[in-house]
Amino acid sequence: LSWLDARGKPVVALGEFRVPADSPRLIESKSLKLYLNSFNQQRMSGVDEVQARIAADLAAAAGAPVSVVLMPLSARPQRRFGYPQGDCLDALDIAIDTYQPAPALLRADGPEVEETLYSHLLKSNCLVTGQPDWGMLVVRYRGPAIEREGLLRYVVSFRAHNEFHEQCVERVFCDLMARCRPRELAVWARYTRRGGLDINPFRASHAGLRADEAMEVRQ
């Protein structure tokens, strides 16, 4: 995002916004993009003023406190790209014919394990525009082993589904909890950028669970 300093010179920054999973409202990405672009010609006294203004406005929109961190490019912020420390499901040789969310595909009847599984084949569609949303889905859990072929079929079943990013991840989390009953579960997605925004929903069963900080290569 960008704004003008007190003397009218543009400032450019990266922004990170964290909205709690239990907030009563979602902030739709297109409206967020338009809101952030409204700062382009505004004179601000400094990063702290911009950060405080955005935090207050987003909290009012979401109905919950929103963490805002702005990193001016002059400070040379770094982003780390990588892959989860786990097993990718995408090479499984399976047939797929279901393209709407189908939780019945999920099974967990193996021995108890602790593992991370992920797939780059996540695709859903924007609830407002119908445009495709591409991403990587990560499932980290401890509990009965999840049947991998069924999990990959389930991930692909979102391919023709229209829903916001956050709703998709919430749906995956709830379906896995209901169908597979892990003792611990964390689910997150790294979606490719739309309008300069990458959206990375995260949902976990316990407060101590964390997503990997690395960004997906397509972001």
Rank of each mutant, 00 (worst) to 15 (best):
residue 214 A to R: 13
residue 178 A to Q: 15
residue 6 A to C: 04
residue 102 A to V: 00
residue 207 A to T: 15
residue 71 M to A: 13
residue 68 V to L: 11
residue 69 V to R: 11
residue 158 F to L: 11
residue 54 I to C: 08
residue 16 E to N: 04
residue 64 A to T: 03
residue 93 D to V: 07
residue 110 G to T: 08
residue 109 D to P: 00
residue 100 Q to E: 12
residue 11 V to K: 13
residue 135 G to A: 10
residue 54 I to H: 06
residue 120 H to E: 14
residue 61 A to P: 00
residue 200 N to S: 09
residue 20 P to T: 03
residue 171 R to H: 13
residue 110 G to S: 06
residue 146 I to C: 01
residue 180 C to N: 03
residue 195 G to I: 08
residue 83 Y to L: 14
residue 168 C to T: 15
residue 43 R to F: 08
residue 35 Y to L: 13
residue 183 R to N: 11
residue 19 V to F: 13
residue 101 P to H: 00
residue 147 E to G: 01
residue 13 A to W: 05
residue 52 A to D: 13
residue 103 P to E: 06
residue 79 R to Y: 00
residue 71 M to L: 15
residue 93 D to R: 14
residue 133 D to W: 00
residue 114 E to W: 00
residue 5 D to G: 07
residue 135 G to M: 12
residue 37 N to D: 13
residue 129 T to Q: 09
residue 118 Y to C: 06
residue 62 A to E: 07
residue 41 Q to A: 14
residue 37 N to A: 14
residue 75 A to N: 12
residue 169 V to E: 10
residue 51 Q to R: 15
residue 96 I to R: 09
residue 188 W to F: 12
residue 156 V to Y: 03
residue 173 F to Q: 09
residue 19 V to I: 15
residue 95 A to W: 04
residue 131 Q to W: 14
residue 204 A to L: 05
residue 74 S to P: 02
residue 26 L to D: 14
residue 146 I to W: 04
residue 156 V to T: 07
residue 37 N to W: 11
residue 122 L to D: 05
residue 63 G to S: 10
residue 160 A to G: 11
residue 85 Q to C: 04
residue 181 R to D: 12
residue 25 R to W: 09
residue 190 R to K: 14
residue 117 L to S: 03
residue 21 A to F: 02
